[in-house]
Design a protein around this nucleic acid. Structure first.
Length: 686
DNA sequence: CACCCTCGAGTTCC
DNA sequence: CTCGAGGGTG
């Protein structure tokens, strides 16, 4: 060992280490004792790793009480303690592919061999590790991992978990179990179970259950096993800790089948590889589908398969050398809710938006997230100033999971629905039993801006070159006041506007001209009548093939149409009764916008008549719109959600949850070719 | 009246 | 993509 050279930063690092130790101690206390953490697991890990790194560089800075010197504890003083004869060690962590390769290189040094090694890759469950002891096949002890050496005795609680065999073998013809048999497993709450449980508790006014892991942990540590029994826990077995030598497998991969034979639930998402690069490729692929797993994971564990080799590798510090835990980049982080802004949609609904201290999650810096509605805010009890947990739902849309109430200082401000529209000051409306709060003023400038944005948007009038910014600009310049004014824009008046060059103006004019020929059902959608989207608009136009006719229809007449109930009928009639609506329609007609249905419904065949399709993912050659048009042209229907009634799901590259749902319900799945073949087989046209 | 299916509306970042 | 709510059905 060489002498550590003096470092000008030594003082600063010593201070930093002390501060990290204090922070980690506090968070340990909050997490393990109070059960209410104020930072996310990933942030905790980051603090820990930073301290660990400092101490590795300057071992002189290690103090006996440093959190790095012991394995984290989750002991609960109310429960009886047991001592583990075979302590559970923690695994060294890897955050990058190179970390994994480095792990392999360290192995080579120790073994002094480049022999081919087998690897088993398992999900790293985000739950609680428990140790189960069986004597003559009877479950005699169930204990939490605790700090690895000492755990809580939760035998009675563990027995209530359905996937824990209390007596093995489960099947009479299976081999007799060795005795004693000590098995390690992970107690988790499956995502689906957690969701259902959370919902159930919410209806009973309990909103504390924020994440599956903490809920599972709480459930397992109940003093009354009946409470545990009422919570949907699942145990996955993943390791044989101890058993008489001659009777058990000699590799991890074989132990997993052995555990299955004994009647334990073992995850199906475990694989074995002979090559480290294959392991890495697997990890990369796995990360993409981690969300379609039934349980939460925060990474993958890679183990050397062969026990003899694994044991020969020994232990360094508190980590076995034969395994490594690869951690996914964090997906749940905490940040501060600095404020709430209110937006008004074109329908008048007021939506609270969270303003966040910028934070990096799942590949992007988030500084804003929707809070959906005020019911949600009240249910979660989020307040301005709170530290909140954030994730990106489906990897994309930022989502506020909930506050960390224990991090409050007392200065946080509750969020209440406004009594007046922030844009036009008119009183806010709220129907009893409904979630939404409305600005009821159809002339509200913000609502009008939103309506026009929607009107020119894609899928409606589809005027290219005119987006949100452009609409606001035109409104401010006084060039438009409503939807119809878009059609009377003059090239000359645009010239003075910032950002409008000759070519851009020309393109915009062409686009506006083209919009006059949109089919009537699209015009109807564009008008933005509440509850009238593509489907409803099509139905309405079919029965009332001109705006003139539709405008004069009564609610009773509308209700006779299938799919139109009292609610839609009322909103349609009400909307046409508004002076603003009538004026817009008159102006549109005057501007030359198509106001009658040309009704040359280009149904080329009835090949798909009576069938409903749901689209997900990206197809190789057709766009989403083209696929939909193709299906409709052949008499089929396109729907947004998968159900038992769905005939086919058409899935392309990187499909979403709909594909999984289809598999669940047994709905057949087609690719693009499959769809084309189906149409051709039934005499349709592509 | 309680379900299930379907639709509509709004959603972030770059 | 997800939620809330409308419409229809048993």
């Amino acid at each position: 060992m060489s002498q550590t050279p003096p470092d000008p930063n030594f003082e600063a690092l010593a201070q930093r280490a002390a501060s990290l130790r204090a922070q980690i101690h506090e968070h340990n206390h909050r997490y393990f004792v109070l059960g209410s953490p104020t930072i996310s697991d990933a942030e905790y890990d980051a603090l820990f790793d930073e301290l660990d790194a400092i101490e590795k560089t300057y071992p002189a800075l290690i103090t006996p009480d440093s959190p790095t010197q012991r394995v984290g504890s989750d002991l609960d003083e109310r429960l009886p303690k047991i001592t583990h004869p075979n302590p559970t060690l923690s695994l060294s962590k890897a955050y990058t592919e190179d970390d994994i390769r480095a792990w392999r290189t360290r192995i080579d040094k120790v073994l002094d061999t480049s022999a081919r090694l087998g690897y088993v890759v398992e999900p790293k469950f985000d739950g609680l590790t428990v140790v189960l002891t069986y004597t003559d096949g009877i479950l005699t002890l169930g204990a939490t991992r605790g700090d690895g050496y000492t755990g809580d005795d939760v035998t009675a609680n563990v027995r209530t978990i359905r996937t824990v065999p209390t007596r093995i073998p489960v099947h009479p013809d299976a081999p007799r179990p060795p005795s004693p048999l000590v098995v390690r497993g992970e107690v988790v709450m499956l995502k689906e179970d957690f969701k259902a449980f959370q919902q159930k508790m919410q209806t009973e006014g309990e909103t504390r259950f924020i994440n599956a892991r903490n809920t599972a942990s709480g459930a397992l540590k109940q003093l009354d096993p009946r409470v545990t029994a009422s919570r949907p826990l699942t145990l996955y077995a993943f390791e044989i800790v101890d058993a008489p030598d001659d009777s058990t497998p000699h590799s991890q991969w074989q132990s997993l089948s052995f555990l299955r034979q004994m009647g334990f639930l073992v995850s199906e998402d475990i694989q074995r590889f002979d090559d480290l690069e294959a392991v890495i490729a697997h990890i990369r692929a796995f990360e993409a589908r981690r969300h379609s797993l039934p349980f939460e994971i925060d990474g993958l564990v890679i183990k050397i398969d062969d026990f003899a080799t694994y044991n020969a590798l020994g232990v360094v510090g508190k980590n076995p050398r034969g395994a490594v835990a690869y951690k996914f980049p964090p997906e749940v982080v905490t940040t501060r809710l600095t404020g709430v802004s209110i937006s008004v949609g074109r329908t008048g609904v007021l939506i609270p938006n969270a303003e966040l201290e910028p934070v990096f999650v799942s590949g992007a810096t988030i500084k804003q997230a929707t809070l959906n509605n005020f019911d949600d805010v009240a249910r979660k009890d989020v307040r301005v100033g709170d530290r909140v947990m954030i994730k990106r739902a489906g990897e994309v849309i930022p989502f506020v999971i909930g506050p960390l109430p224990d991090a409050r200082t007392g200065t946080e401000q509750p969020i209440t629905p406004p009594t007046h529209c922030p844009f036009c000051q008119s009183p806010v409306l709220h129907e009893e039993g409904e979630v939404a709060y409305y600005c009821g003023n159809p002339e509200c400038p913000e609502r009008i801006a939103r309506s026009i944005e929607y009107f020119v948007g894609k899928g409606q009038m589809d005027i290219e070159g005119l987006g949100e910014k452009g609409v606001r600009q035109l409104l401010e310049a006084g060039l438009i006041r409503d939807e119809a004014d878009v059609f009377s824009l003059k090239p000359e008046s645009l010239e003075n506007l910032e950002g409008y060059a000759k070519l851009k103006i020309q393109n915009l004019m062409n686009s506006i001209e083209a919009a006059k020929k949109r089919p009537l059902d699209r015009v109807l959608v564009a008008l933005g009548i509440p509850n009238v989207g593509t489907t409803v608009a099509k139905v309405l136009i079919k029965h009332f093939p001109s705006l003139e006719l539709l405008m004069n229809a009564t609610a009773d007449q509308l209700q006779t149409i299938g799919g139109i109930g009292p609610s839609i009928a009322a909103t349609v009639v009400d909307w046409f009764a508004l002076p603003r609506s009538r004026s817009v329609i008159t102006k549109l007609a005057a501007a030359g916008v198509q106001m009658v249905s040309t009704e040359t419904q280009i149904t080329r065949s009835e090949a798909l008549a009576g069938m409903t399709f749901v689209l997900t993912g990206t197809l190789p050659t057709l766009t989403r719109d083209e696929t939909g048009a193709l299906i409709e042209a052949n008499g089929g229907k396109v729907s947004g959600s998968v159900s038992k009634k769905t005939s086919y799901v058409v899935a392309g590259e990187s499909p979403g949850s709909k594909r999984d749902k289809a598999e669940q319900l047994g709905v057949p799945i087609l690719d693009e070719d499959g769809l084309k073949r189906l149409i051709a087989d039934r005499g349709g046209e592509s």
